[in-house]
Design a binder for these strands. Structure first.
Length: 687
DNA sequence: GGCCCTCGAGTTCA
DNA sequence: CTCGAGGGCC
């Protein structure tokens, strides 16, 4: 401990000292409470606390939010603070067999326009079954640890992470000013078993598997409990970095190791599908002997420059994939088949199962997808069925065991009417899904739409989850989405209701108020227009920028064509949008919402590029770039990519074999360039 | 007209 | 996570 007398500290030194003290005290506190051997003596610990107090007394304006003096007796905050990830935390696509892996590499080659002879190095590493975490170091000091959450926003678990021995509190040596190190927190199998024995001895409930034990341990509000749980860590990725001191994934792993982070010893560099598969097989063989659970092997393109070119698809990178081990299977009895009604009226069958443990989790429901699926598999109520957890998560019925079929078991008769509102349920030509035609008279549809409206990717109103919104609808408090924003006015209706105290009502109301201003893309997604999901909603917002513009287009003559000019929107989606905005009930809902809300126009990113705001059309074949890559480049530069040439088109990039689009561009006098020129013009602005 | 890639809409359990 | 279907290229 620095022992400069408090009175001699400059403000800057004091601030730094407080930061360090906050860290140290939290750490030692956890050690003290959680382990038999505290790292320092009680006297030394007291000295830290006293010094912290003294500095705070002298510089009250420097008291930190995470000051230990505030935390004493104040750990009751029921949740962890939210943390925005500066760089999204990824999820991965999956491969389930060798064919998928071959296809993964073929896709990469296609995208990069690399032929068979070009070697693309990849890293293969075990996929640890734990929890992803992001550790932020500033000037070498661990300042924040956040869970993955939904990938863009996680929870602050810094205090708990500080109790994990394997995670360095400081990075020594010449490291970038900002380093976000990412990896997996896990609990070893042996520690898990021991923990469960302890839990049982203390008459507490046991954890289902090491992953849950690790998750439960990390999400403790009291870091001392986390400290008592033997959590471990493997580093394998990074987020926000002020500089990248490596150019390949393999180099990154070495760098991480040199900084003192545990990295997985089974990671291996590969040059072909065959290499990848042999690593996979090896890991599969040693899997049982590893001291931690893994659920597959991750393959990543090694070269970061190539990763950068490959970019992302929705939430997953094109340059990585998880090759999953075969799912664990189990046999149980099909007790019944429930029919659920979704927000679009889709009737979905759900299998009710005799509870059974699969992959460490008790499963009692499984999806049956649709009518045809039940017929194809010929599963009947009363059958013994084989089930598995697909990708180790979602339970699914694989097949019935015919030899065990009870006598008289009848094929399942799919309902032709909605089980909720009784309206007819029909299958459109060529569609697999049977839908309730009740529309807004169907309670199930109304409730599901409301749930969608408040869901995380739409309005995301904290404290107003699907259960609450369903209850509010049941009570007649919320009929249509806009009613949510009028709850404040009727707060009396909530008074005295079970589970709603003054404080929780206040919290709910302020959470609702927070969403009274909403981004256009979230708003559009929340409306639940058929075929308009998160991505299409963003594309629409990007293309038209305001709700008014979208409504005008949709209601105008030829609106569907105008909409389908947007890349990614075709006739079916365009017509769904047009239909939505013509339907009087929907218009009423939208107008009602508009009177309650401030809808923020979409701000197209300022990239400073000359292509910003332009509409580009690629036509003909491209020789150096793949179309997908060209498109992602254009978008990176803030341009829109359209599929057809119109008066709004700013530039056409034409390759050999261009036909009608090129002709039209010439007619309209739109500038046309070739691929070479495109590459030249974009060269400086892409990194 | 067929194929590939993406997206939407459905799903479970802790 | 999976499936089906829409969009767009070839």
């Amino acid at each position: 401990m620095d022992d400069t007398p408090v009175k001699d500290l400059t403000e800057k030194e004091a601030a730094r000292a407080l930061a360090q003290l906050a860290m140290d005290i939290t750490f030692h506190n956890a050690r003290y409470h959680g382990e038999d051997d505290p790292a320092i003596s009680d006297a030394a610990f007291d000295a830290l606390v006293r010094r912290n107090e003294a500095i705070e007394t002298r510089f009250p304006h420097l008291i930190r939010k995470d000051s230990p003096s505030r935390q004493v007796g104040a750990k009751a905050s029921s949740k962890f603070a939210k943390v925005q990830h500066r760089v999204r935390m990824l999820s991965l696509g999956n491969a389930f067999n060798e064919e998928d892996v071959t296809e993964f590499l073929a896709r990469i080659r296609r995208f990069l326009k690399a032929d068979e002879d070009t070697q693309i190095a990849l890293m293969a590493e075990p996929k640890i079954d734990g929890l992803s975490i992001s550790l932020r170091y500033e000037d070498g000091a661990l300042v924040q640890a956040a869970t993955r959450g939904d990938g863009s926003e996680g929870e602050d678990v810094t205090a708990n992470i500080r109790t994990i021995e394997e995670i360095p509190q400081t990075l020594v040596g010449d490291v970038p000013a900002v380093c976000e190190i990412r990896g997996e927190i896990y609990m070893s199998k042996a520690d898990f078993t021991a923990l469960n024995e302890r839990q049982i001895a203390e008459e507490k409930s046991a954890f289902a598997n090491p992953r849950n034990a690790a998750a439960g341990s990390l999400r403790q509000l009291d870091p001392s409990i986390t400290a008592s749980r033997p959590l471990k860590f493997f580093a394998y990725a990074w987020g926000d970095m002020s500089a990248l001191p490596f150019a390949a994934h393999s180099e990154a792993l070495e760098w991480l190791e040199n900084l003192g982070f545990p990295t997985n010893p089974l990671s291996k560099r590969c040059n072909s599908v065959a290499d990848l598969l042999s690593v996979y097989k090896h890991i599969e063989i040693v899997r049982g002997e590893l001291e931690y659970d893994i659920d597959g092997v991750v393959y990543k393109v090694d070269d970061l420059a190539l990763q950068d070119r490959l970019g992302f698809v929705a939430k997953a990178p094109r340059w990585a994939i998880a090759h999953k081990f075969p799912a664990e299977k189990a046999i149980t009895v099909l007790l019944g088949i429930d029919i659920q009604v979704g927000r679009t009226g889709a009737l979905t069958p759900v299998a009710k199962l005799e509870p059974v443990t699969v992959g460490g989790v008790v499963v009692s429901n499984a999806t049956l997808h649709n009518e045809d699926e039940i017929a194809r598999k010929d599963v009947r109520i009363g059958d013994h069925v084989r089930i598995q957890r697909a990708g180790d998560v979602i339970p699914q019925v694989i097949e019935p065991l015919l030899e065990k079929r009870p006598k008289g078991a009848q094929p399942f008769e799919y309902p032709t009417h909605c089980p909720v509102c009784g309206s007819e349920a029909v299958r459109e030509d060529g569609e697999v899904v049977r839908r309730c035609t009740g529309g807004l008279i169907c309670n199930a549809q109304v409730v599901e739409r409301l749930k969608h409206f408040v869901s995380r990717r739409a309005f995301d109103i904290e404290g107003l989850g699907s259960k609450h919104i369903a209850a509010f609808h049941e009570d007649g408090l919320v009929q249509s989405p806009a009613d949510i924003f009028r709850i404040k006015v009727q707060r009396g209706a909530l008074d005295g209701k079970e589970g709603w105290g003054d404080q929780s009502i206040d919290n709910l109301i302020s959470a609702i108020e927070e969403r009274r201003t909403i981004a256009l893309d979230r708003f559009l997604f929340g409306l639940g227009i058929r075929h308009v999901g998160e991505v299409t909603a963003r594309d629409l917002a990007k293309a038209f920028e305001t709700l008014g513009a979208i409504e005008d287009i949709a209601r105008s003559e030829g609106g569907a064509e105008a909409l389908s000019d947007v890349d990614g929107i075709g006739t079916v989606v365009a017509e769904a949008i047009v239909a939505f905005f013509h339907e009087p009930q929907n218009r009423a809902v939208v107008d009602d919402l508009r009177s309650e809300l401030t809808i923020e126009p979409y701000k197209n990113e300022q990239t400073g590029s000359t292509f910003e705001g332009q509409t580009l059309v690629f036509t003909g074949s491209l020789e150096q770039l793949s179309r997908a890559e060209a498109k992602s480049q254009a978008e990176k530069l803030g341009a829109k990519v359209s599929g057809s040439v119109s008066s709004k088109t700013s530039l056409v990039i034409a390759g050999p074999g261009a036909g009608s689009k090129l002709k039209k561009a010439e007619e309209l006098g739109v500038e046309v360039i070739d691929e070479e020129e495109w590459i030249r013009r974009t060269a400086g602005s892409l990194n």
